[in-house]
């Protein structure tokens, strides 16, 4: 299965809304989700959508490892390539 790319991640993030002061097309890879306006519930929602789309299951401690978009991409793509 294809990897999760930044554009795909942004598309998922947009379904959770975009905070007024945030430009998702800017440099966001290493900006914590919290600073982008996404609280823990929103990150869980993003994770859930990735799980559905790529048929993977995130572990319970995934929140600890997916604090920024880059971490989310890495974490998700690890799962996708290993088929976890």
């Amino acid at each position: 299965m294809a990897d999760l790319g930044l554009d795909e991640l942004k598309k998922i993030m947009r379904t959770c809304g975009v905070a007024e002061s945030v430009d998702l097309d800017g440099e966001i890879l290493d900006v914590p989700f919290e600073q982008l306006g996404y609280d823990s519930l929103a990150v869980l929602e993003i994770q859930g959508q990735i799980e559905q789309e790529f048929a993977v299951a995130m572990s319970d401690d995934a929140l600890e490892h997916t604090k920024t978009p880059r971490q989310m991409l890495d974490f998700a793509n690890d799962l996708i390539t290993t088929g976890a």
Partner: peptide, 8 residues
Amino acid sequence: VPSLLVPQ
């Protein structure tokens, strides 16, 4: 409605 609130 604030953008982040809409899907919630």
